[in-house]
C-alpha cells in the first residue's frame, strides 16, 4: 500500500480544490445575503460582521416570492404528472412491441433531437391559438412523453415479465386499470427518479417564463429572481438573499433525493 500514498495525496488535493470551487460561491452568496448594504459596499469580499435578515425581508417583497411559489408548485406538479403519465403510456406498448407502428413512433420521438430548434414556431403556434400569457400556454410546451423518461421506461418495462399482462387480460382487467393498479406500482423506482428530474427541469425553467408570461400573477419563482437582473448596479445583498430563498428548497430536496436524481441521469446519459 505504501507506494499509493503520493497518489492518494494527489487525488485528495485535486478533490479539495474542486470542493472549494464548488462550495465557495455558495458560501459567499450566503455570506453576501446576510450583510447590510453598507457593510458589503465597504468590503465586498469580507466576512459578515453580524447576521442581518433585512435583505431577506426586502428581497422577499421585491421578488414577490410569496405569490410566485404557489405558481411554481402548480406548474411543476401539473407538468411533471402529465409528462410522466404520457411517457409511461407511450413506453409500455413500444417496449412490449404490441403495435406495428411502434418502431415508427419511437423514431419520431428520437429524431426530434436532431432537427432544428423549434422554439420560434412553437411560440407562433401558441401565440396564434391565443395561449400567450396564459398558464396553459406556458405549461404545454414543457409537457411531453419523450426524452429521458421514455428511454428509461422503455428499458425498465422490458424487465417486467409479460406474464403479468397476459394474466391481467385473462382475468378481464382492462388496459388502463392494469396500468394504474399493476404496471405503474411496479415501475415505482424508475418513475420516482424520472419524476424528480422532470420536476427540477420545470421548477428551474426561466426562458419560457420570460418568453411566454407578461402577467405578473402567472410568474413562477425563477421569474421573481430574474427581476434582479443587470450587470453590477443591482443590490447584491438583496439579490443573493432572493437567490438563497429560491435555491434553499432545491438544496434541501436534493439532500434527501440525490440518489434518485443521480441514478436517473446515469440512465439517461448511457442511453443517450
Amino acid at each position: 500500500m505504501k507506494r499509493h500514498i503520493p497518489l492518494k495525496i494527489l487525488i485528495y488535493t485535486f478533490i479539495a480544490i474542486l470542493m472549494i470551487v464548488y462550495m465557495f460561491p455558495l458560501f459567499y452568496a450566503f455570506n453576501t445575503s446576510i450583510r447590510t448594504k453598507l457593510d458589503y459596499m465597504a468590503n465586498p469580499s469580507g466576512l459578515a460582521k453580524s447576521i442581518h435578515f433585512e435583505n431577506y425581508v426586502e428581497a422577499f417583497k421585491k421578488a414577490n416570492l410569496s405569490a410566485y411559489v404557489g405558481n411554481s408548485l402548480f406548474y411543476t406538479a401539473v407538468c411533471t404528472t402529465a409528462s410522466i403519465l404520457m411517457a409511461v403510456f407511450l413506453a409500455f406498448p413500444l417496449s412490449r412491441g404490441y403495435l406495428k407502428i411502434g418502431g415508427l413512433i419511437m423514431g419520431l420521438f428520437l429524431i426530434s433531437m436532431f432537427l432544428p430548434d423549434g422554439t420560434i414556431p412553437q411560440f407562433q403556434i401558441l401565440l396564434h391559438l391565443g395561449l400567450y400569457d396564459t398558464r396553459l400556454g406556458y405549461m404545454i410546451g414543457m409537457i411531453g412523453g419523450g426524452g429521458t423518461p421514455l428511454l428509461m421506461f422503455y428499458v425498465y418495462i422490458k424487465g417486467i415479465p409479460r406474464d403479468f399482462d397476459e394474466a391481467a387480460s385473462i382475468d378481464g382487467c382492462g388496459y388502463f386499470r392494469y396500468m394504474f393498479t399493476i404496471m405503474i406500482p411496479l415501475m415505482k423506482p424508475a418513475i420516482a427518479s424520472m419524476a424528480i428530474i422532470t420536476a427540477i427541469g420545470i421548477w428551474n425553467d426561466i426562458i419560457r417564463a420570460i418568453i411566454y408570461l407578461s402577467n405578473k400573477k402567472l410568474y413562477p419563482i425563477t421569474r421573481g429572481l430574474y427581476v434582479f437582473r443587470g450587470q453590477y448596479q443591482v443590490d447584491m445583498t438583496q439579490q443573493m438573499a432572493a437567490l438563497i430563498m429560491v435555491a434553499a428548497p432545491l438544496i434541501i430536496m436534493y439532500v434527501f433525493l440525490q440518489r434518485y436524481i443521480i441514478d436517473g441521469v446515469v440512465a439517461g446519459g448511457i442511453k443517450a
Partner: peptide, 24 residues
C-alpha cells in the same frame, strides 16, 4: 386502448415538437 394511451404524447410531440422544427 393502447393507441388511446399513446395519443396525448404523440399529439403534443407532433404539434409542438415536429411541426415547429420543420416550420423553423
Amino acid at each position: 386502448a393502447l393507441l388511446a394511451g399513446i395519443l396525448p404524447a404523440l399529439f403534443l410531440q407532433v404539434a409542438l415538437g415536429l411541426i415547429p422544427s420543420v416550420m423553423t
